[in-house]
């Protein structure tokens, strides 16, 4: 059975028809890169998948749960889906460790010692075990983003949504974050990424979804689609970013 299933989803911002019938099925362990021009609806689609954004028509089923913006439903979903944002969004008044332990403690009622162990575990995974007691403002952007990934992982989600998570980083810090994603992919984590990193999409990703004007315009195996784009829109897009 598929882990994420998006069926004929339509989304409006007032008059603006942003998603125009999206169909997408993602299996466990897949790494899917969503690409497309600015304004094509990539972020909106991602945000609909974990209940940050509502949709007017269609259905999204994630890990057997219907996705909606209802608070109770969003809380239930948090056990299955994590999200990492372009702007890190670490909580500035909490240390790295506290950022990570917060949700497991509050939502999963994990005990103090166990939460600490869990935090160290995910921090080691992103190579920042020594930052446990540090505050986010003392970290570089790349480090903050890796903490944000660790924070999501601490909830042991089945799928991780990433919205341009390297776009706010200095070029020399992008690599460290991508390395973490690559490692997660190798461990079998399901990843859905909105990204401009074409090399990453090709080399690490399984599938590419090209969005254009609110629709999935072209999709398929990552290497194939990027090497041989069929539609003129995708050809033009790839030409522009490479």
């Amino acid at each position: 059975m598929s882990l994420v299933s998006v069926r004929d989803v339509h989304k409006y911002f007032g008059e603006l028809h942003v998603l125009k019938g999206i169909d997408l099925t993602i299996n466990a362990g897949e790494v899917v890169s969503i690409i497309g021009r600015s304004g094509s609806g990539k972020s909106t689609l991602l945000r609909c998948m974990n209940g940050l954004e509502s949709y007017e028509q269609g259905a999204i089923i994630l890990d057997g749960m219907e996705v909606s913006t209802d608070e109770f439903q969003v809380r239930k979903l948090s056990h299955s889906v994590g999200m990492v944002f372009q702007s890190f969004n670490l909580f500035p008044h909490l240390t790295v460790g506290e950022n990570i332990m917060l949700a497991p403690k509050l939502i999963k009622r994990v005990g103090k010692e166990e939460a600490k162990k869990l935090a160290m575990e995910v921090l080691e995974k992103v190579g920042l075990a020594d930052k446990f007691g540090q505050y986010p403002e003392k970290l570089s952007g790349g480090q903050q983003q890796r903490v944000a990934i660790a924070r999501s992982l601490a909830m042991k989600p089945k799928v991780l949504l990433c919205d341009e998570i390297t776009s706010a980083l200095d070029p020399e810090l992008v690599g460290d974050v991508l390395k973490v994603l690559e490692q997660l992919a190798a461990e079998g984590m399901t990843l859905i990424l909105v990204t401009h990193e074409m090399n990453f999409a090709r080399d690490v990703g399984d599938r590419v979804v090209f969005m254009h004007q609110g629709k999935v315009h072209e999709t398929g195996d990552a290497k194939e689609v990027l090497a041989n784009p069929q539609t003129p829109e995708l050809q033009q897009f790839i030409g522009a970013v490479l």
């Binding site: 969003v74 702007s87 969004n89 999501s152």
Partner: peptide
């Protein structure tokens, strides 16, 4: 910042939390 609220929601925290 709006992103902080979204991150917290995504982590499963309730409005009160």
């Amino acid at each position: 910042p709006k992103g902080q609220l979204e991150a917290a929601r995504t982590l499963g925290l309730s409005s009160r939390q």
